[in-house]
Design a protein around this nucleic acid. Structure first.
Lengths: 214, 214
DNA sequence: TTTTTTCTATACTCGCGAGTAAGGCGCTGT
DNA sequence: ACAGCGCCTTACTCGCGAGTATAGAAAAAA
């Protein structure tokens, strides 16, 4: 039985407890900041507001982050990480290109209705400095390449219509990213419902006359 | 023969000439400003830069506009006016709902690759004050309603697949608006080509299996 | 010519908000 | 006990850029 054993809970935090505590506080800052960024925009949000919402003061925030830009960057990074995870899951999923694409798109859409996902669409790379912009673009490019890759697979195996994969990827990415700009938490439609509907439209198109939808 | 007759060009400008001159200068400010806004973002652009590009100074700009926000608003207004014009043209065009929609979408896409159109997508309403935000949203809502109206027409006459018109409108608007964020002037694809491709994807969908595209 | 209006420049103000300096409190380890 | 570090505070600096006060040149009106 170790000192960290499950039998007794020591009131004195261990070193790893305190490390975890620090991480929890960092995450709390990000969670609060991202909501302000989404609601008011990055520039219109000042860190005093964020600090007040957390019932601390601005220097406290600077104890965990070195700059406002770093906070924004970590927010979009979390959003993009979430998208990358669903992209990887879709790739590993097996099935036809169309099946993998559909699964990918739906999860992608759902991410865009969560705080960190929304932040990605609402953040312009002009809000970051040169280095942050470079990294932001690189992360977005990774996502794009995975999306385009799945589309190419589907075109190759014949489950997706032939066409320009770059254009197709940008088209669907646009429709999905845009969700972050019109989705309303308090609205009537549920995320699940929106994701299903948008993906169905993208897969089947607007025009009438599909074989499978008479 | 009037004083403004076509026969002789007086070197002394008439009152209407000077009015036109003033308008020309206003437009020049907007044309320059919108390019800076699109390239660097609204906040990162300062009016000294814009003035220098026009080889004047900041107070000159304030002689034509009352604030930086007014300049931005007039830029997005021009972009949205362009979209409204193509929407009205599509409505008057006649033909089935699907035909009118397709015509609308293509012209919409083309607008999003021009300076003022790009500015619309790149501008968040958080960049405007309460009044500007209200007007901006109203203009965007007009466009949305027209788009959704055409889609409803198409669903009613059976040329578009049945579904949720609100969702469909948001999906296509997203794909089109997003063009403004990835289109590259210096890229290989021409606006015409992009517009055709994106609209075709939206109308027909990504999945293989259309009757009209075996 | 004189007066007035239009347009533009030089040289400022001024508020906002990112980021910092310096100190205090409490826990940890020696 | 005491040195050291983690955490958080109050109270500041300071630069940037929107917007302005003022004046002068040129053109229009009188």
């Amino acid at each position: 039985m170790t000192a960290d054993g499950a039998m007794t809970q020591s009131p004195w935090p261990s070193a790893s407890d305190r490390q975890a505590e620090r991480e929890t506080k960092r995450e709390a800052v990000l969670a609060t900041a991202v909501r302000w960024f989404n609601a008011k925009g990055f520039h219109a949000t000042n860190l005093d507001d964020v600090a007040r919402a957390l019932r601390v003061t601005k220097p406290t925030i600077y104890h965990y982050f070195s700059s406002k830009e770093e906070i924004l960057f970590e927010c979009v990074q979390r959003g993009l990480d979430a998208v990358r995870l669903v992209a990887e899951a879709a790739q590993d999923r097996g099935g036809s290109g169309a099946d993998r694409l559909q699964a990918f798109l739906k999860e992608y859409a759902l991410v865009m209705m969560r705080d960190f996902g929304m932040c990605v669409s609402r953040t312009s790379d002009t809000q970051l400095g040169p280095e942050g912009r470079r990294r932001f673009r690189a992360l977005k490019r990774d996502i794009h390449d995975m999306l385009q890759g799945v589309i190419e697979d589907g075109m190759r195996d014949g489950t997706l219509a032939a066409g320009n994969p770059l254009l197709a990827a940008n088209t669907v990415a646009g429709a999905l990213n845009w969700i972050a700009l019109w989705y309303d938490d308090a609205g009537k439609m549920q995320p699940e419902e929106i994701a299903e509907g948008v993906v169905a439209t993208l897969m089947s198109g607007l025009a009438a006359g599909r074989k499978d939808r008479p």
